[in-house]
Amino acid sequence: MLNRLDLLLGDDVLAECLGSNRVLDFRQWLTGGYLVAIHLPDDLGREAKDILADFLLSKIELAMLGRPESQQRPCFVIADEPHQYPSAAERWKRMVVESRKWRVGLLWLFHDWRQLPRDLADIIKSAGVNYHLYPSSKHTYKSLLEEVEPITLEEAMAPPRYHAINVIRSGGAVVPPFVPDARAPHDADQTRDRHGLNLC
């Protein structure tokens, strides 16, 4: 117990965050139509970042489970590079199975299927999620060949630039995998007005 307290309170950033009197009302945010962005910079250190991310996700999970049915407005939780906070893996395993009935969608953004713990990856696959597969590793595509059929491994490994393979579940059925005709991103230099403001 003392070792854990020393880990939490011995880090200046963690001590300040966890000792703050400010209230993070995630239930209000999940229900009220807010856009909440939480940035955990790398200079926090790997351990502090992991602990804070898991703490924040615990608040989100409790808020999700605590919303009465009348307040279950659809909302999304987007996690960028979730492998950077491995302590949250057990929480993700629960949430990916339960979140849908609480009207909470989970989106993970990462580069390679191997970045997730194997059991978490298996649970995600069994939960019947949607996939948007941008260029990735051969291992990732091989792991998802059943999901992207009839697209072959060779086709998956050579998508047109800016394109993604999409596997969507809608209305209780799976839409056949498709690759939409994607537009190239705007060139930032061509989307500035005469005052230098970015118009994108």
Rank of each mutant, 00 (worst) to 15 (best):
Y134N: 14
V104P: 04
A89M: 13
L9R: 12
V13L: 10
D112I: 10
G32E: 09
L62E: 14
T191L: 11
R194A: 15
A188H: 11
L106T: 00
W92N: 02
A89S: 14
R183E: 08
R194L: 15
W29F: 03
D193T: 09
C200R: 12
W92R: 01
L24H: 12
K142S: 07
L56R: 02
V167C: 06
L197V: 07
L145V: 14
F76S: 05
R118Y: 07
K93S: 09
L153Y: 05
L56M: 12
P180Q: 05
R169V: 07
A48M: 00
H132V: 14
Y131P: 00
Q190F: 10
M95L: 12
S87R: 08
V77G: 03
I168F: 05
R73H: 03
Q115L: 09
G172C: 06
L35A: 15
A158E: 13
W113D: 02
D119W: 08
Q72V: 04
R100V: 00
E16G: 11
Q71Y: 03
Y85M: 09
N198W: 11
R114I: 04
G32T: 07
Y162S: 04
S70F: 06
G45Q: 01
Q72I: 00
S70E: 15
P86M: 01
N198K: 12
D12P: 13
Y134E: 05
E154P: 04
L153W: 02
E146N: 13
M95C: 08
V36N: 01
R22T: 11
D50Y: 00
L107I: 15
V97H: 08
R192T: 12
L8I: 15
P180H: 10
C75I: 02
D11K: 05
E98N: 05
D11R: 00
P82A: 08
E81I: 07
E147Q: 15
S143D: 09
R100T: 00
D12M: 15
V97R: 15
V104C: 00
D181S: 14
H163V: 04
S20K: 10
A79Y: 03
P185A: 01
R194Y: 14
K49G: 06
D50E: 02
A182V: 12
L62D: 13
L14E: 00
E16Q: 13
N166L: 10
A173Y: 14
L199R: 09
D50C: 07
I78P: 06
L133Q: 05
P74R: 04
I60F: 02
V13I: 08
Q84R: 14
W92M: 02
H39I: 13
E146V: 07
C75K: 03
R114F: 03
